[in-house]
Design a protein around this nucleic acid. Structure first.
Lengths: 187, 187
DNA sequence: CGGCTGATGTGACCTGCATCACAAAATAAT
DNA sequence: ATTATTTTGTGATGCAGGTCACATCAGCCG
């Protein structure tokens, strides 16, 4: 068995075949087309998503209509409005496809059921969560220490494939720069 | 038994007396004076800390000497260089006292031992970690959407007691503004 | 094919905030 | 108390990056 989710989890904890089967049983699969929404601001965020293929953006929209990209999610990334998903509150952000995308979906109930039937998976989620926190903190630090241009160059180095796939308008909304200014970097 | 750590954990999961005793047995207590370091950049981050009293700052120092405050930690907050603590890598940030401070300390080994002997504590740490991630993401969003003055006013509303206890020089280093500019807000 | 929508580049101009400089309070140290 | 040391305020000046405006170019769909 050679499932992307299994490989992903086994980087942290080993799994026997029937354990992975149990895990997979708690997920459903969905496909979305470019421009479709997986989560809509204001509505409940029913699922936490694991990206099998494609590309998503987690977006906050100001009342003025200006968009800010909180995160991208590519293959092997987890994404949701985690606060909304975990607490049941209405989502404050939208999750939208930048490409046709296939995901695994898990509800909070199924997630808790899974943790109860396979204790050790909790360690996996905990580690994901810690590293998610760490990388958010690093992004904060980058915003405190670096200029827009430095942040752009760092993004280029760290996620060159992302920069290929995403229009610069969107990168600008992620970096916190205007698209005009971003366009003036690098030529 | 009426321990601040117990009350803190019981907001998430209920504990029997002997369970809390088991938990507490994995921590040690330490006291530090103002200006002392709990973690030094470049050295290993041996402990994760739970603040019983006092006030800490998690600081990144640029090669120029300029300081950036990644986080504050008051009573009932957990703080460490989490990446360094979790992976064993040398710390990239320092943790320093802004006031005389008393903390509970736990090593990574004791943490794992604790999780093994009391499975349900893992759910507590997972929830802490998720909410830590969520609030880091909110801070990123605030940096994307708001001006320095708006961020300062939001801080005033959300943590008025913190603003009382911390000199504005430090608040500026947290908000990502120069102290001069911060001083010109509000009068 | 031809019309549309969104992505990108570039100029002109404006503004929020940094930086430098100096002074006055307020705390801490001896 | 009396030095130090840190904190805070305020002016003057400069720059990174925002905003507006317009032009080009690519991809998409009837």
């Amino acid at each position: 068995m050679n499932h992307p989710l299994r490989e992903h989890i086994e980087k942290v904890i080993p799994l026997r075949d029937e354990e992975f089967k149990l895990i997979l049983g708690h997920f459903s699969t969905k496909k979305f087309k470019k421009h479709q929404f997986l989560i809509q601001e204001g509505e409940p965020a029913k699922y936490n998503f694991f990206v099998l293929s494609g590309l998503l953006k987690l977006v906050f929209t100001e009342s003025s209509g200006k968009q800010h990209i909180v995160a991208f999610a590519m293959e092997d990334w987890w994404e949701s409005d985690f606060f909304a998903w975990y607490t049941g509150a209405p989502a404050t952000m939208s999750l939208e496809c930048l490409e046709d995308t296939e995901v695994l979906c898990i509800t909070l109930d199924d997630y808790h059921a899974l943790c109860n039937s396979l204790q050790k998976i909790e360690r996996f989620f905990l580690e994901k969560s810690i590293f998610g926190f760490v990388s958010a903190q690093r992004r904060i630090l980058a915003m405190l220490t670096s200029s827009a241009q430095e942040r752009y160059e760092r993004l280029l180095k760290q996620y060159p494939s992302l920069v290929q796939r995403v229009p610069k308008t969107q990168l600008a909304a992620f970096l916190g720069v205007s698209r005009e200014t971003l366009s003036r970097f690098s030529g």
